[in-house]
Every structure is written in structure tokens, then in C-alpha cells.
Amino acid sequence: MWVEDWAPRAACKAAQPDQLFVRGAEQNKAKQLCAGCPVRTECLAEALDNQIEWGVWGGMTERERRALLRRRPAASWRTVLETAREGGRPQPAPAGV
């Protein structure tokens, strides 16, 4: 199930922003915050769909996200990631959508 209001559930919600917007080897520490996050997929989709250039989002660095965006520049990352999380099966739209 996709979480629309994902930020309050993020593992990093209590972290200082400086911990997530780092360079070099410090990015690996930031990515560890994401490892067990219950809304990691939603966070990553947000960063990819909005082409956020800085920081670690959804366990990926800006360089890693740029590589994905180059491969599929017109993708709806929410759709891609939601479908992948559900095992590749398209899900019916919720009632009223």
C-alpha cells in the first residue's frame, strides 16, 4: 500500500538535515538511516519524480538517482516503484480515483 503522507513515518524524521545532505563517504552513513525505513520507496519516488538534486533520498545518492533518471527520463517513478514493490503486478486504482 502506498503511503501518501510519508514524511511523518520516515526513519530520518528526527535526524538533522545536515546528516542527509552530505558528500563523499558520509553519504554511506546517510544511506544507513534509510535501510530500515518503512517509507523508503515513497521517499525515493518523491525525489525522482521531482528531480531533487541534493541529498540522500530513499537510500540513494544524487549520483545514483541521476543514473536512474538518465535511463528512464519520462517515467512516473511512483508508478514504477509501486508496481515493483507489489511484485510487478499492476494494481487496480482505489475507488473514487
Rank of each mutant, 00 (worst) to 15 (best):
P17G: 10
E46M: 05
A7H: 11
E42R: 06
R9E: 14
D5N: 15
A35T: 00
T41P: 04
E46H: 12
L48N: 07
P17R: 13
R23I: 10
R71P: 01
R89A: 14
G96T: 12
L44G: 04
M60H: 08
P8E: 09
E4W: 07
P73Q: 12
G96A: 13
D5V: 13
A93T: 15
A67D: 12
L69P: 05
V22D: 01
E62L: 00
P92Q: 09
R85Y: 02
D18M: 09
K31W: 02
L33Y: 07
V22P: 02
R65E: 08
A47W: 00
C12K: 01
D5H: 13
R40L: 08
P17I: 10
E4I: 12
D49M: 07
N50P: 01
G96Y: 13
L68R: 14
A10Y: 03
A93E: 15
A95E: 15
Q19S: 11
G96F: 14
W77P: 14
R89Y: 03
L68Q: 13
R78M: 11
S76V: 09
W6G: 10
G58R: 08
Q51G: 05
V56Y: 02
P8M: 11
Q16W: 13
R63N: 08
Q91D: 07
V56Q: 01
L44F: 00
Q27H: 03
A30M: 02
G88I: 13
T61R: 04
C43D: 01
T83H: 10
R71V: 13
E42L: 05
L68E: 13
I52N: 03
T83G: 10
C37Q: 01
G88T: 14
A11G: 11
E26P: 01
E26W: 01
P8T: 07
W2F: 10
P8C: 11
T83V: 12
G24N: 06
D49C: 07
A35G: 01
F21E: 04
R72Y: 11
Q91H: 06
L68G: 06
D5Y: 02
R23Q: 14
P17K: 09
L48A: 06
C43R: 11
Q19Y: 07
G58I: 04
E46D: 12
P94F: 04
R40N: 04
L44T: 02
C12A: 03
G59L: 06
K13M: 08
L68P: 05
E26C: 03
R85D: 08
A30W: 01
A47F: 00
D5Q: 14
